[in-house]
Design a protein around this nucleic acid. Structure first.
Lengths: 117, 117
DNA sequence: TAAACATATCATCATTTGATGATATGATAG
DNA sequence: CTATCATATCATCAAATGATGATATGTTTA
């Protein structure tokens, strides 16, 4: 049936959605919003990223529908758009800790349990 | 705290994990494995991607712990490593259809809902 | 052993993409 | 209305990344 790469349907969109999570900076931003809305400057502080960089990624995340923005005075507060964004983060967390343990070792960060497949 | 970009801990790994899903070709491969194990040539057929391309992505997906491989004669069968990989796919599907509807419009593809089988 | 098949690897190229610095927009305070 | 603060935008550059073609590895069959 080939609902895959040949004709860019939901596949490309879903990949684009995942790309929101797939960059360390953007992921850091999403994690920073895990506990509620934050202003851009807050996010800058927490993540240690530069302000233009954060703004750029935020607009990207907003385009992808992962976050929403609301102006308040001269501040703009961003928050996760949906509970499922948090669920995705959590699920990936679990998967990473459990199944994809090889990633930990592979990248030579802290390795808890060494066991090749 | 600042468990973000400054020091590459689980953050970078999680981003890497998501990157497995974030490319149309890899996502197509993952979707092709949704219903069970498939050989490389099967995946090539279903996705329409070239064989070296599929092999490259598969090794990437295996490094990320998203799929596992098992040789059988001159065939190599790949399958999703964990139920949660499927769950992530499904969750993203739902999120995309519902919340991130803007992505559909933004990219000017058709904004339909059903793409499951 | 040779041939045919299935998969993996590798170098290269073209594109994408993230970061940076400068600057623009917009809002509040004084 | 001017200065200051918060955020957004933009051009540019450097780096990462996916695709391709050629080829290597390994397996089965004749």
């Amino acid at each position: 049936m080939m609902l895959t790469v040949a004709h860019p349907t939901a596949l490309a969109l879903q990949a684009k959605l995942f790309r929101g999570f797939a960059d360390p900076s953007r992921l850091a931003i999403l994690l920073a919003l895990r506990h509620g809305a934050r202003s851009v400057s807050d996010i800058v502080q927490v993540t240690g990223l530069s302000q233009p960089n954060v703004s750029n990624h935020l607009s990207c995340l907003r385009d992808c529908g992962l976050v929403t923005a609301s102006s308040q005075g001269r501040f703009v507060y961003y928050e996760l758009s949906d509970r499922r964004v948090e669920q995705l983060l959590r699920l990936a967390d679990e998967l990473l800790a459990d199944v994809a343990k090889g990633v930990y070792e592979c990248t030579r960060y802290q390795a808890e349990d060494a066991s090749d497949e």
